[in-house]
Design a binder for these strands. Sequence first.
RNA 1: AGGCGUGUAGCUCAAUUUGGCAGAGCAGCUGACUCCAAAUCAGCAGGUUGGGGGUUCGAGUCCCUCCACGCCUGCCA
Length: 331
Amino acid sequence: MNRKRIFSGIRPTGEIHLGNYFGALRNWVDLMHQYDCVYGVVDYHAITTPFEAKTMPQMVFNTMAALIAVGLDAEKCMMMVQSDVPEHTELAWILSCLAPLGQMERMTQFKEKSQQDPENINLGLLAYPALMAADILIYRADVVPVGDDQVQHLELTRDLARKFNNAFGDYFPEPQPLLTPTPRIMGLDGKAKMSKTLNNHISLFEESDVLQQKIMTAVTDENRKRRNDPGNPDICNIFSLHNIYSKNDEVQMIDRECRVAGIGCVDCKKILHGHLETSIAPFRDRYKELHEKPDEVRDIAREGAKRCLPIAQETLQEVKSRLGIGKHQFV
RNA sequence: AGGCGUGUAGCUCAAUUUGGCAGAGCAGCUGACUCCAAAUCAGCAGGUUGGGGGUUCGAGUCCCUCCACGCCUGCCA
């Protein structure tokens, strides 16, 4: 049986939080059973924005450890570090020569990041989507799981694949987006999406006491000022997490009781903390264990790269051949 | 490579005519009030003034040099 191939990547920036998990990693675990999956810790993407060389190895290690800790199995999928498979960047160069400047400049993520940090706009930031296209196409992936924010980048990938196929003969599959519904995880401040830079996140590997403290100080429904005031779960940060972590009947109970002031925010938060702790604990334990046995992580990354290399090399050789490039042209 | 400009707390910016105690707002942390949180109030902390050198009793401020970023003009491929 020939399974369809998936590629997906995660940037090694900071710690993995609940938003990352529900936005991507949880899907990755499910997809591993149905597809031939390649998952990358994309360090070359990480250097398009300011970074520190001295913390980079730890970032990459932590991210790889996180993938393993949440249940990705090296027997069932390939996990690798992007820079271990240099064919990614070589293909990225080729694809960037097919990418229209105007289209790259219209990428909303590029525009956003340029606006956020106008002093750090570099060519790599502009070329980022071309590298992402290379990540996908180097494995001739059929399917790419994407969130809303990556739809435009995947569209570019498809454009580039089509453009290549038209110019140099059919070769690349046009990767299909796999839009899996993901809950939008709000940050603890109740104002924006959970993110590390806003420091409103809960780590997927949070220590128990820190977890409790973060939940207890999280923003709730601002209008519920007193214990006897009725609350509105629809706009409550904590309730949105109950939707994910609590059983259906319990969610309904909390929804009902909050609205009539039958249950207080403290009780509500305690229940959530209990579920969250139970849910996170195995991830945290495994994550710690991997930090005590770093060789296990390194072996998996090494093995992943080893399995990815022949695929990537084959693609690149074929691509170069079609472009009329490469030393084999002379022999 | 040259010219011009910018660089001060996590962020936005102050700091009197070539010099005289580095400050404010926001963010952050702590406490009070709150079922928790928010809001409010009180408090705390936050700095190699991009780096190095020089002038001076004294440099964020003046001079030299290096670095980063921006704009402009070139040079080489």
